[in-house]
Design a protein around this nucleic acid. Sequence first.
DNA 1: AACACGTGGAC
DNA 2: TGTCCAAGTGT
Length: 368
Amino acid sequence: MTKVSTKQSALPFTEERKASIQRRLLQWYRIHQRDLPWRRDQDPYKIWVSEVMLQQTRVETVIPYFHRFLERFPTLEALAAADEADVIKAWEGLGYYSRVRNLHAAVKEVVEKHGGKVPDTLEAISQLKGVGPYTAGAILSIAYNRRVPAVDGNVLRVFSRLFASADDIARVQTRKKMETWAYHLIPESNPRDFNQALMELGAMVCTPTSPSCETCPIRSDCLAYQKGMQHELPVKKKAKPPVSVSLVFGWIRDGDRVLLERRPEAGLLAGMWGLPTLETDASDSVQALIVWMKKHGISIQPGETLGMVEHVFTHRKWHATIIGGTCVGIKGELPQHWRWATLDELETLALPKVYQKAVQTALSSIFA
DNA sequence: AACACGTGGAC
DNA sequence: TGTCCAAGTGT
């Protein structure tokens, strides 16, 4: 939430319509809400963790991570006191790793600056890393029952249909407009359930591809349903397809250890450990790897190609060739962002999926 | 404002 | 296979 306009003139609903939507939605939610692990209590810390995990991530994916994470870090204080490497390990495989770095930093800040209590004001909570307009509204409304909008992708979709809005929901302007609508739609009595009801409806009934309008509690209020437009809404600009990139991964051994490289602090898989990775279109990728590693003071004796890995990110598609080799000499100390790891040590590191695939491929090639 | 940022599942 | 996502945020 940035700032909510309080002018009533532009609202797409009357007071009667508002009352109808509130009543039907709340009644429906009381009956049909899912029993999700983060709905067992209203602990702001648990709500916060769940909201960050749920960013761009499906509920079914989040559930096991949520259980493990809360078992490992049961309280805000426990998380704040933990080593970052352990925190990231608990996030391994969830993706968007900056989320957990921001969460960890923010939790530490809450301990230092707010006495360990998650802030209950929009101004304070919005200053925390990784807490944007949606997450701020979600925590304030769900944990503290504050009347603050929590407009996520579900709500944008529900509103687009409910009020027959053809505005592109990818636009900032559209999100702000709908935040205003949401603010004026929230009942004073129960912001907590109303915000969740709106999202739950989007998740369970007013779904992206085939909405279940027949069972929708507010279909009589829905302008898109009345016009038969529910399948045309919401309007959203199409995403560009991922760009293909060719790379080589090094599987460089020194006895029973393999060489790892830490990725740069910014960009894709920022700060994560992985196999030595070189972006190259060179016809002789083996030579490119040798030269590149030599520049880092590491001499290798190349071996055979151990396989290929394909991995699709949101904006990138990696085609990686895994090249085996042994270390035959290191000039001075290993650079800061490089390290050796035994296979057992590999297990203790947080490895992104693309490198997990590569390790599997290399090992199965070697033991084939 | 537009784009980068992970992953797995559905169609 | 390709496409579109799923409870967004940071830049």
